Amino acid sequence: MNEGSGTRRAAVIEWLSQQQEEMRALLALLVDIDSHSHDKAGVDAVGEAISEWCKAMGIEVRRTPRPRFGDLFEACLGEGEGTVVLLGHRDTVFPTGTVAERSYEEHDGMAFGPGVADMKGGLVMNLFVLAALARTGGLAFPLKAVFTADEEIGSPDGKALIEDAVRHARAVFNAEPGRVSGNLVTGRKGGANLVLEVSGRAAHSGVSHADGVSAIEALARKIQRIHALTDYDTGVTTNVGVIEGGTSSNTVAPWARARIDTRFVTFEQREALFAALEEIAAREELPGTQATLTQVSGFLPLERAMSEALLARYQRSAAELGFEVEGEFTGGCSDAGTTASLGIPTLCGTGPVGALMHTEREYLLLSSLVPRAQALALTLLDLDEG
């Protein structure tokens, strides 16, 4: 490390060390905007708040309108090839109106509120990292923060936008919350949501029961086969979480539907699992029934090999700041799987430490805001120097 580099690293660390109160203020602002995935106006309001903050910092923001889900917002430092991307999503799982019931609050060193850790804390961290680097001259490569709008429902619109945004990128850092252990995420399961629809033949259940063919019975048989695909030893799970069907209790059901969640660790498992599900869908459980299987959303897995090099760089930066961090596997999915599947080195869970996501007890550890921002900024400077 040369003298100029050391001076710049010190300046970045020092500036971020003074931003705790400003980080908390921005966090409160973002958390107190309802932004459920299907609330386009709310998700866009978060993007607009981010855009206003960036403009005040002299950071360029691009907005790409989307017709159904929230718009795409991108904050950029520099242009050209070899971009490094800071990734994050603005949507939460909490329905519109949640903020009125329980808005942002702090106590005992923790922040609470809908989406405070997953992942508005990560958005705040990414923004302050951008600002810290912009203040000290930028980087030799373009740096782009991407703020998506529909991750919590499987990125049905965002997946293609992310693929376009990270095209030719050299690295991606996804600011999902750091684990409660303080670790980063170096491996994630992939997952998919599917709908299985079965058609049968209606009949009066008292007068002409034998003339009917029950779609519900056929679906029930398929559900048993689907659940039998779960293998805890390999990490593959299947779950039928919602079932619907029929028209009345005295009618043989002419239709039935199931919503399925699947999880897998590797791409090979995904291919084998999907083939098995297609086989189950095609099987005629009862004469006269038919079924169709449709994928409605999904994430690819983040395999550890795609994170190892970035983890080593981050660990050096953390050690420089006086703390240790390891990589960790989680069964949850994220957009990190999308970027890793494109062959781009990807590190996830770089956001501030939080826990109990998707519950009313979700919290973010306020003391982790500054050091996690500093560690990420130093990692980016390390990439710049390397």
Rank of each mutant, 00 (worst) to 15 (best):
A282Q: 13
G200C: 14
E308Y: 11
R188K: 05
L366G: 05
N2P: 10
A340T: 00
L77A: 01
I260G: 03
G6F: 15
M357R: 00
M357F: 05
I162K: 00
S248G: 14
T237K: 13
L30M: 15
E303K: 09
E79V: 10
T148N: 09
R135V: 04
F274P: 04
D231K: 09
F274Q: 13
I216D: 12
G331A: 12
G178P: 00
A272D: 11
V99S: 03
T186A: 09
T7F: 11
T148S: 10
I33T: 03
Q374L: 02
A140D: 11
G42S: 10
L219V: 01
V116C: 02
G235E: 13
T7A: 15
E320C: 09
E14K: 11
L293M: 11
V240Y: 05
A145I: 00
S181Q: 10
G109R: 13
V61P: 01
D118Y: 04
Q19I: 02
E308C: 11
G70T: 00
T186V: 00
V242M: 15
E385H: 12
L380A: 01
R361S: 14
G88C: 05
L229V: 09
Q290Y: 03
S35E: 03
C333P: 03
D233A: 15
R90E: 02
R283S: 15
L194Q: 08
E152H: 14
T230L: 07
L133A: 03
Q295M: 14
L380G: 00
P177M: 12
R9K: 10
A100M: 05
G235S: 14
A25Y: 02
L347H: 08
T64Y: 06
V124T: 08
R9A: 06
G137L: 08
S214D: 09
A319I: 11
A210F: 15
G288I: 14
R259F: 15
K40D: 03
V129M: 01
K189M: 06
